[in-house]
Design a protein around this nucleic acid. Structure first.
Lengths: 206, 206
DNA sequence: GTCTATATTATGATAGAC
DNA sequence: GTCTATCATAATATAGAC
């Protein structure tokens, strides 16, 4: 009874991602996932234990590879500051645009108060903050950013990078851009690079 | 059997806002709302028809007064551009920080694909975009922003302003700031003003 | 690995008494 | 306006056959 080409575990995962993305985690039932995957409901428990297990699996799978990249990039302290900063932002944008569905699920679910969300914050997001703070501290040493608070700048940069991928529907319907497209990622990166330069250089001149 | 001081309708609304904020719309049940409000479940249907009605009521209540303010401010075209722009951003920040719970509910629920979300986008959020586009167009006429795309700038500014109120937990636990406090709103506004000036002035000098 | 069958509990919603 | 009682359905989850 198995469909050709793809294993059930994978089919369940794909279906869950698709439905969580569109309808939200609590807005999706295991039955819907099973139907979408063309698989029996009981198989979900077999592979992922329960609904929460599906979400946890999804989150870990997302953050681990991303943070390997980020960590590596944050060690390139021999690069010019603006270069390192824009490269770190580029990593985030590229990663998000290649995983738009999971990105939106995670961004949304992190805004719900839960143990899982708190764990993600303490394990990954504090680390992420420190990566960016380090770079900006280097930037201050180089004479940039004199009158902009570092922490708020990090918060701001991350807001810019995350929000369009959370609110993809808004980007589509209000700005007529497609967050899933490579073109958007490219355009967005270019824009951000320009903006970062504006911020840094301006303050340098003061 | 009525508790003193507050009417049931109001108590239900408050309870719903509190629980939707913490656990999400789909993550909250009518029974939980009734318990939190100290009121019978049936009363929710009596006042708000059904669960969806509660969410709709909440959204309209939020956007109407906000857009009255925004609309009014967007007519002040005699002000200097930076002044008008920062004032519009300030309106958003103040409004969000005075309604942190509903703001988070709405920001989160807009990222779920639904008819309601689509309506909010077409009724309010496109209008919001146009307010900001108009100001930035004035800015371009004044010789600013030469190499920054207007629409992307609007998207970016709104991302900065919205994201911290959606991801309040992140702001708290990673940046040790309290999004509900007036102090945060003040600090954030000051920062943004500085940043807007950086962006505009820098490009002016080129 | 996959399915059937079922247990158990929860859910949104309403009819009708007070 | 408020509550009791109840319905119909839907939810997650598991035990056990194949």
């Amino acid at each position: 009874m198995r469909a050709p080409g793809e294993k059930s575990e994978q089919k369940i995962f794909r279906a869950a991602v698709k439905l969580f993305d569109i309808n939200g985690y609590h807005g999706t039932t295991l039955r819907e996932i099973a139907r979408e995957a063309g698989v029996n409901v009981a198989l979900i428990s077999y592979y992922f234990k329960n609904k929460k297990g599906l979400l946890e699996y999804l989150m870990i799978r997302y953050f681990e590879p991303l943070f390997e990249q980020m960590e590596q990039e944050s060690r390139n302290t021999d690069l010019p500051v603006e270069e390192q900063l824009t490269r770190m932002l580029l990593i985030l944008i590229r990663y998000q645009s290649r995983h738009t569905q999971i990105t939106r699920i995670i961004q949304r679910e992190l805004s719900v108060e839960s143990i899982l969300a708190r764990e993600i914050m303490s394990v990954y997001l504090t680390r992420q903050k420190h990566f960016f703070v380090s770079v900006l501290e280097r930037s201050v040493e180089a004479g940039h950013l004199r009158n902009l608070d570092i922490e708020l700048t990090v918060m701001t940069l991350l807001s810019i990078v995350h929000y369009p991928y959370l609110n993809a529907q808004w980007v589509r319907e209000v700005f007529y851009l497609e967050p899933m497209s490579d073109q958007f990622a490219a355009q967005f990166s270019t824009y951000l690079k320009e903006m970062v330069l504006s911020l840094i250089k301006k303050n340098e001149e003061k």
